[in-house]
Design a protein around this nucleic acid. Sequence first.
RNA 1: GGAGAGUUGGCUGAGUGGUCGAAAGCGCCUCCCUGCUAAGGAGGUAACUGGGCAACUGGUUCGAGGGUUCGAAUCCCUCACUCUCCGCCA
Length: 415
Amino acid sequence: MIDIKKLRDNPELVKQALRKRGYDLDVSLFSRLDGSRKSLQVDVENLQAERKKLSAEFGKLKSSGDPTDELKKIINSKNDKLSSKEDELQIIISQIDSFMLDMPNIPDDSSPEGSDESENVVIKKYGKIISTNKLDHLEITADIDTDLASKLAGSRFSVLKGDIAKLQRSLISFMLDNAIKNGYEEYYVPFMANTDSLIGTGQLPKFEQDLFKANENLYLIPTAEVPLTNLFRDEFLNEDDLPIKVTSHTPCFRSEAGSYGKDTKGLIRQHQFEKIELVQITHPDNSMTCLNELLSNACQILDALKLPYQVIELCKGDLGFSSAKTFDIEVWMPSQNKYREISSCSNFTDFQARRANIKFKNKDGNYYVHTINGSGLAAGRCLIALLENNYNGSDSIKVPSCLIQYFGSDTIKIN
RNA sequence: GGAGAGUUGGCUGAGUGGUCGAAAGCGCCUCCCUGCUAAGGAGGUAACUGGGCAACUGGUUCGAGGGUUCGAAUCCCUCACUCUCCGCCA
């Protein structure tokens, strides 16, 4: 949620900033709503103040034994007026609330201009593309079984067997240990989240169709960003404790509504996948520095795995709903002959902090923190990148040296 | 699943119809004292929000939502959550 004061004071400025990400802000609707809010609120508060005074008088009359009938009549008629005004005000306020909740974050000035992904900017390339392998991960190993998964659950699920399952587990352990080494505290969290949490991080109310709903108030998490960030919801944090760095490995669940026909084969786009998430709760003064640190924390994984990748900076038009600035890390997928997203590292500035009410106090006042997060990394996609890049073309896959201590061997034999 | 207790400020916790946005303690801030530190003393310190250039001045909020009442942290109803005991269970 953006600062409503900013919107009141500079609606045109906000409108222009949001236009760059393709959002058309209805300024006249907002000023109409906010105008009615203002006059109604003044009326309501005046009536409330009057009632307070009259009720106190009533109490005095009552205790001195004087008649109260006349005053009661006056108060009652004021109350009638008050409650109808209150109802009107309530309606306007809830309209303003949903207006604000539907509005995306304002892009950071430093994000490149552009209207869609074609205008994203490559800012770093790492590693040499050496694999000439054309086989995809399903063709390389039979131990990734999507047919079996469809018997169990349906399309967009997978069953991993034997060394492949173990390799994914090794990746997860390596990534977590790396995060811990970088100062993140590991958490184990619920894989379901309530609506307040999902509103806090920005998935609700706008993107309900992307989530799996378990019951009236519970959803499967689409990313550990949700539980990790909401650990701090409605908290006052210690300014000296910032930045707070936390991490967790969780499965992530996405309905992938609207992605029919996209990435239908293999593990690229699944309803359920494993991910290590990095989250930082930062001081607003240095959140961009923290974002760069988090980005390099994520890149370290691919460096260690020796997988070719590139980092791109999203242009304003391609930013996610809650983000002010985003770097995507894309790993080389030989079978597709292109880079695919394996992490998205974003600075949400105070957007999530406002929704989730995460603040710190110092002697000058109360301030919203900034929130930063990114995958470090998506384990499923990392697994297939590893298989495809490290396949020897016939019968084995090389295990990178950083994983050997977890996996227990330097090669995977395949049939 | 059964029975009971609870949810109050940054934290602990008192408060059963008006004098309560709320005692006390902790924490924090300012000052005094002290060679330094510790201890001690004085004062200050909830959040959100409206109006106003400002000084300032209103309103809301005691888990959430309804109700009773001139007036609700306090009484009634519904719901959520937490804890304890019993049952069941990985």
